[in-house]
Simulated scan of single mutants.
Amino acid sequence: MKKTAVVTGASSGIGEATARRLAAEGYDVVAAARRRERLDKLAAEVPSITPVTLDVTSQESVDALAASLSRCDVLVNNAGGAVGLEPVSGALVEDWQRMYDINVLGSLRMTQALLPSLIASGDGVLVMLTSTAGLVSYEGGGGYCAAKHAQTAMVETLRLELVGEPVRIIEIAPGMVQSEGFAVNRFRGDAEAAAKVYAGVPGPLTADDVADAIAWTVTRPAHVNVDRLVLRPRAQAAQHKVHRVTS
């Protein structure tokens, strides 16, 4: 029987690319997200992808997805995002709540719901899509960095708590990724401001680059755990050190 992979936030960007890549690797993929019309289009293009409407901020929605599955071998907690770039002193509490509920509590809900199935599979893989923002903080990123640091802490704790169980716990921490919607959402729909983030950067990471890394970690032998994989474009040496080409 083919293995089943669940990918959250699969309607665009890294989630969509990961769903496509895992399907190409031979998995039956459950592509889960809120924007069902985009998932239906994806499933029409890739027969081994099943679309499921999911809101990771809703326990009812998460429970319904879990109840619909006959098995789960891989869970990719990808749903997330950033909102706002205000300093901590001027940040909106509702923005922080939103980022925490999606990135952290959404991952917690999904992990709790599907962990029994991952263990029962005999070779489960849990992938947490974090960020280099979960390793190093930066100005204007307080809320997003806090959420990603929390996800990193969750991964490290899970690995300790589940040692001896047949489940690999993997963290994927990308740096600068130019993917659909991420920066635009962060700038509250200002596409021009979002584009400036990547201006002059030769070769930022793409969603496919991250999906490739996820697929590689997931398809290692069962005894090999990639604890944390950090990937950045060559042009980004660190959070604050990015090479830009000026015309």
Rank of each mutant, 00 (worst) to 15 (best):
L42M: 11
V230E: 15
D55V: 12
D63S: 13
V201W: 11
V177K: 03
E86P: 01
E139F: 08
V218F: 00
V74S: 05
V224S: 09
V56I: 07
A113Y: 12
I14W: 04
M176Y: 02
E60T: 11
E94T: 14
D95G: 04
S107F: 11
T157C: 11
E37W: 00
L54E: 01
V155G: 05
Y144T: 05
L114H: 05
E45N: 03
D40H: 03
V76H: 06
L54H: 01
G189Q: 02
N103D: 14
F182V: 13
L160W: 01
L231C: 00
V155D: 01
T219K: 03
D227M: 09
A215F: 00
L85D: 00
L92F: 09
N78M: 10
M154F: 15
A222R: 11
N77H: 05
A183N: 06
A23C: 05
A79V: 05
T4Q: 10
G141K: 01
A235Q: 02
E60D: 14
Q59S: 15
V56Q: 01
E139N: 05
T53L: 03
G80L: 12
R36T: 13
G181F: 14
V245Y: 04
P87Y: 08
T219C: 14
D190C: 12
L39Y: 07
Q236A: 08
D73C: 06
C145D: 14
D208R: 09
V177A: 12
G26D: 03
R36E: 15
V6L: 13
A120I: 01
S179E: 05
T219W: 10
A173I: 12
A213C: 10
I49M: 10
N225Y: 14
T206S: 12
S48C: 10
D95V: 03
S179G: 00
